[in-house]
Amino acid sequence: MYITITAQKLGGNYSQGSADFVDYLEKENQGLDPEDKEYFFNQYGDRISAEEVVREIDANTAKLEKTEPRFYSITISPSKYELNRLKNNSEDLKKYTREVMKDYVASFNRELNGRPVNIDDIKYYAKIEDQRFFKGTDTQVRENQPFAAKILQLKSDIQKVERGEQPGNIAQMKREISKLEKATPHKQDGQRIVQGMAKEGNQSHIHIIVSRKDASNKYSLSPGSKYKASKVELNGKIVKRGFDRDKFFGKAEKTFDKNFGYQRNFVETYTARKEFIKNPRSYFSNLMKLPTSEKAIAMKMLKETGMPMMPNIPTNKAQLALKVFNRLRRGVDIAVKSSSIGI
């Protein structure tokens, strides 16, 4: 489960409206008949139009400064293993979203009118998307890039030869392109993977737009707070503040596992991914302690994510060289960003 929380920006500034972001989320509906479209939904309603989402989010911004975000975007991306546990893809993801937003409000260290924040206090809209596209940061695209660069140069040279701008053997250059295409390490359906190509398989994920202000338009609820839990004096009153992302991400995993009977492997957990970055020595030590069957599944999952791996993981801790871990940490930083782990 990969989750990110992002304050939406337009260039270097926070967007003053939600229309551009909502339009982006409508991209899969382009050209579809009304009955075939995927609509927005929230805790209590389905088939909510994009126009209603924009209207409601943009009207819920009382007393916010231009330097403050009007809304946040939460992206929830289940893995293919998690998606395989679903029986009804769309309905199950809607059910999960409604449960995970309860986890979201429970992660605020805030009180409104003397009580904890609850699900009725937030204004959010969610949408399921079924497609994902390869990004430039994806391992497959990065490792294909040297081949892509040579192919592009050869195609450019062919055009120059055809225009009489330089000499060359076009047939030979085309044969070289064919060899490079065959030698490219990552393909999908026989085609070289490039940035912007749609990913095969079940790619369903959830986009959520949640207002910075609560449903009453009086209180600010920021999941981007740098505080997990603290208190501050405001207008003579002691006010709680903060949002615990670790708590939210952990609860989101447990909610999925409980609802769909999912047996989560060690390497799939948010805690393990965070440990990989902060303490790789401990991470690999715990990985090696897994039962043989679980360890085999873990290795398969790591390979599929493109996470850099050592050819053979040493069992002796003294063999875990610092330079190897530094390389792994740099590599996983890229994997984290491209996979939207959201630490």
Rank of each mutant, 00 (worst) to 15 (best):
K251W: 04
P280L: 12
G306Y: 04
G168T: 15
T269N: 14
A171L: 11
H207E: 01
A296V: 07
Q263R: 15
M1I: 07
V324E: 14
Q172W: 11
I297G: 01
T139K: 14
Q145D: 10
K66S: 11
K240L: 02
Y283C: 02
E68A: 04
V105R: 09
K63Y: 09
D246F: 00
N118F: 02
I209H: 03
P185I: 03
N29A: 01
S285G: 14
I5M: 14
L302R: 15
G164K: 12
I334Y: 12
Y227V: 08
M310C: 02
M307N: 02
R192P: 10
K94N: 07
R85M: 11
R142P: 02
E68R: 10
R212T: 14
L86T: 06
G331F: 05
D46S: 05
A298Y: 07
I170N: 13
M288T: 00
L154T: 00
E38A: 06
F41R: 01
R55S: 01
E176P: 01
Y72I: 02
Q188M: 14
K155T: 04
F260G: 07
P167S: 13
G190R: 11
T292H: 11
T6C: 05
E304K: 15
Q140E: 15
D333W: 09
S338N: 14
R212G: 02
N89P: 04
Y124T: 03
G306A: 12
F71N: 01
E56I: 08
K300I: 01
K37H: 01
A59M: 02
R245M: 10
P280W: 10
L154Y: 09
F133R: 11
Q140A: 13
L10E: 13
K237E: 08
E200P: 02
V332Q: 11
S340Y: 10
D121V: 14
V100T: 15
K95N: 08
K87H: 05
P311G: 02
F21W: 04
Q191L: 10
F284V: 09
Q166K: 13
Q159Y: 07
D244H: 05
S15G: 10
G196C: 09
A272F: 14
K213F: 05
G196V: 09
I334W: 06
K187H: 15
Y39R: 03
S338I: 02
I297Y: 05
D20F: 12
S339P: 00
T184I: 11
L93S: 03
K102V: 06
I3S: 10
R264L: 07
N202D: 13
T75V: 11
N326R: 11
L320K: 05
K251V: 03
V100A: 06
I297V: 15
Q131V: 02
P167D: 15
S293K: 15
A50V: 00
M307P: 00
N235L: 06
I341A: 12
K258H: 09
T139M: 10
F243C: 09
A62N: 04
G17K: 12
L221I: 04
M101A: 04
Y81H: 08
D20R: 09
